[in-house]
Write a protein that binds this DNA or RNA. Structure first.
Length: 563
RNA sequence: AGGGGUGUAGCCAAGUUGGUAAGGCACCGGGUUUUGGUCCCGUCAUCCGAGGGUUCGAGUCCUUCCGCCCCUGCCA
């Protein structure tokens, strides 16, 4: 028997997985894949990060490699422990584990500093004393090459002395900066003597006041990757230009060559994902916090009731490529429903009640019906729901003058109450203003359980709640935060805030049976014919609060919309 | 304008030595159904940003052009 060389089946895979398989097959980067997820702790993680997390941790898992969690904490002005904590929680919640490989760029400050001195010694870095404005002016622009700083020719000794004194705190913020000596005429602006270190007298959330100089991203990231033995360093497309510097630093310093590969960042219709805009939504009070269920943050979606597997599935479905993209929100919605359909137990609740009086049902009688928790898996058991003479059904499940194809309740029409009885509407009661106050119906005792001996068909099945047993709950109905697909696409003088959806949150009182009250925060339920809901942490002993995670697909609404 | 990236259906996205356009979402049509949910089946690119060329044959090779995105932080 002959063993043919393994030909990596790269077809159908995204370009990153194809790259990995090839590298693993050729041994070009060794035999163990090592990636990292490198967030800056300056905000909460959102859907865009989920794509990166699923990529980095995902490929590590698929190819038997490792993925580190590394905080890119080089700018103490914007970073804080609060963000570190939320990030750790969110990555874990998404379902990934970094074991003991939790690193911080700040762990490498001492090494980074030593390597900077080495660069100076090699004549590859110098201390510049130009002001920030001057540096900007000297940089030139897209078409005009930059000019060299007059301080570019300082001796190694002078540079070393100055740099050490920068560290020692002898200078004011902004007085000096350490720059790489590369090429002020490079067509790639990133290579025009980029800053490596700046002076910043700010307390760092981890290193405290140990340092008053902090390394820049471009210098820190590649070295951190290298020190951790990262084989593949994935980042988004806006860093393509920075790759030249990433490679320059590692090559010049003769360090292990981690390799950067870029992919397109995620954008989704009806939402914004830029950190700046997300912060603005929170700070200006357009939402109630980072974990507001309308936010595209992982904490927001978690609170909304979105299961982590839905997000992982979503990331798998959208794929990875280098083309700019804007994924339709419906794709996410599909993944959420798909995950919830299999896992959320069923229940019944009426959100906009109208009373039904079953006039031939004994006033003092009550009975209990079994509602399957999972219609497609009867073995999962049932929910016992009480039935009595007076019930609530949904207001829009009744039409006095039924529209075409409307097969719910209407005068003279018979419908099924889910798992209970068939009822027929006999009369409509109204108040002085003409508002419907109650529907007088009769039931067919033969239809107990929702079917009849004569196998008579009814066209509609309605959800219901026994009025006497109904428990009020606060229901928060969420809708898109923005009115248009692309919230950034606004006319001159307007911003994304001008297209905020004023009805993104509607709070109503819903009615359900007592079994629902036993649920605890985070628990999910599908209210049949309405949608998926999740118990909110705002729930108290007195009132339960439910967040609507997603509606069910509504074919009837579509028919109505068309006519 | 200099450098870089990218263009396959409404959206995402496969397509790796050139051989005659995967899959998913959405949409539309039909079936099943005690959720107008789920599930099932079917339709949906004579065409791959545009033009020219090479070839028996091109989304794939060559060439010209066009669109969109990124880069002028002591942010990441």
């Amino acid at each position: 028997m002959t063993t043919l060389p393994e030909v990596p089946a790269t077809t159908g895979k995204d370009f990153i997985r194809a790259l990995i398989e090839q590298d693993l097959a050729t041994g070009r980067k060794g035999n163990t894949l090592h990636t990292r997820f490198p967030p800056e702790p300056n905000g909460y993680l959102h859907l865009g990060h989920a794509k990166s997390i699923c990529l980095n941790f995902g490929v590590a898992k698929e190819y038997n490699g490792l993925c580190n969690l590394r905080f890119d904490d080089t700018n103490p002005l914007k970073e804080s422990q609060e963000y570190v904590d939320s990030i750790r929680e969110d990555v874990q919640w998404l379902g990934f584990d970094w074991a003991d490989r939790e690193y911080y760029a700040s762990d490498y400050f001492e090494t980074l500093y030593a390597l900077a001195e080495k660069l100076i010694g090699m004549g590859k870095a110098y201390v510049d004393s130009l002001t920030a404005e001057e540096i900007r002016a000297y940089r030139g622009n897209l078409t005009v090459p930059g000019k060299e700083s007059p301080y570019r020719t300082r001796s190694v000794e002078e540079n070393l002395d100055l740099f050490r004194r920068m560290r020692a705190g002898e200078f004011a913020d902004g007085q000096h900066v350490l720059r790489a000596k590369i090429d002020m005429a490079s067509p790639n602006l990133v290579m025009r003597d980029p800053a490596l270190y700046r002076i910043r007298r700010t307390t760092h959330h981890r290193t405290g006041d140990t340092w008053c100089i902090y390394p820049m991203y471009d210098y820190t990231h590649c070295i951190s990757d290298s020190l951790e033995g990262i084989t593949h360093s994935f980042c988004t497309l806006e860093f393509v230009n920075n790759r030249a510097l990433y490679d320059w630093v590692l090559e010049t310093l003769d360090l292990y060559r981690s390799e950067q590969t870029e992919f397109a960042r995620l954008s989704i219709t009806r939402t914004v994902l830029s950190k700046r805009k997300l912060i603005q939504l929170v700070e200006e009070g357009h939402v109630k916090g980072w974990d507001d269920p309308r936010m595209p943050t992982l904490s927001g979606m978690r609170r909304r009731g979105v299961p982590p597997e839905a997000l992982r599935d979503f990331c798998a479905r959208i794929g990875i490529s280098r083309a700019e993209n804007e994924v339709e929100f419906s794709m996410l919605e599909f993944c959420i429903r798909e995950a919830l359909n299999h896992t959320a137990p069923r229940g019944m609740a009426v959100l906009d009640p109208i009373k039904v009086v079953v006039e031939n049902y004994p006033e003092d009688q009550e009975e209990w019906f079994d509602l399957p928790l999972a219609p497609d898996a009867p073995e999962k058991g049932v929910r016992r729901v009480p039935f009595s003479r007076e019930l609530y059904i949904e207001r829009d499940d009744f039409m006095e003058i039924p529209a075409k194809k409307f097969h719910r309740l209407a005068p003279g029409q018979e419908v099924r109450l889910r798992c209970a009885y068939y009822i027929t509407c006999k009369d409509v009661q109204k108040d002085a203003q003409g508002n419907i106050t109650a529907l007088i119906c009769t039931y067919d005792p033969e239809s107990r359980g929702g079917g009849t001996p004569d196998n008579r068909k009814v066209k509609g099945t309605l959800h219901w709640v026994s009025a006497r047993h109904a428990k009020p709950v606060e229901v928060r109905l969420y809708d898109h935060l923005f009115l248009q697909d692309n919230p950034e696409d606004v006319e001159e003088g307007k911003t994304f805030l001008d297209v905020l959806n004023p009805d993104s949150l509607r709070v109503v009182t819903g009615y359900t049976d007592a079994s629902i009250l036993g649920m605890t925060p985070g628990e999910r339920v599908q209210f049949e014919r309405i949608g998926y809901f999740c118990v909110d942490k705002d729930s108290t002993d007195g009132t339960m609060v439910l967040n609507r995670t997603a509606t069910l697909k509504d074919t009837w609404a579509k028919i109505v919309a068309k006519s």
